[in-house]
């Protein structure tokens, strides 16, 4: 799992899973003593640019509320951005990102969390489609 994919999954992981794991990591002295908050969690917005299909022009659809944070563990930086206003969870996600870069053992734990998240998302999407597909109107065409 590359770093980009990990950030995508940390952005969508359950809040309670993230904060619990961050709490566990912080209880290790090696992490607690080495953590440095580069950018404190900040609630802000990202402007959503879309490219429409008629003229292939970009326009602004509107803004999305996000929270962003950046930390470093022993100088190794970790970043997270999540939708919503939860500063604590975003800080936790940034911390896990830094830990995963910093320490192989911790990386495995973060990887496992990300994989669980990926499985959950995939399962949700499959279920969603199974429910939706019943609403598809089918017309039998004569060949």
């Amino acid at each position: 799992m590359d770093r980009n994919r990990r950030s995508e999954l940390l952005a969508r992981a359950n809040s309670s899973e993230l904060t619990a794991m961050a709490e566990a990591f912080l209880s290790r002295r090696s992490i607690a003593e080495e953590i440095q908050v580069v950018n404190p969690p900040e609630v802000g917005m990202v402007m959503m640019q879309v490219r429409e299909p008629v003229c292939k022009e970009r326009f602004h659809l509107g803004e999305v509320v996000v929270t962003r944070a950046e930390v470093a563990v022993a100088g190794v930086r970790g970043w997270a951005m999540r939708s919503g206003t939860d500063r604590e969870t975003t800080l936790a996600a940034a911390l896990l990102d830094a830990c995963a870069e910093h320490d192989v053992e911790l990386a495995a734990e973060v990887q496992a969390l990300c994989e669980r998240t990926a499985d959950r998302i995939a399962a949700d999407e499959r279920r969603e489609w199974e429910e939706l597909r019943a609403t598809a109107v089918s017309f039998e065409e004569l060949d």
Partner: peptide, 16 residues
């Protein structure tokens, strides 16, 4: 969720 250590880090970042 009880996260005292994470809270500590969070509190540290509130600017004085």
């Amino acid at each position: 969720m009880n996260t005292p250590l994470l809270q500590q880090v969070l509190d540290r970042t509130t600017p004085v």
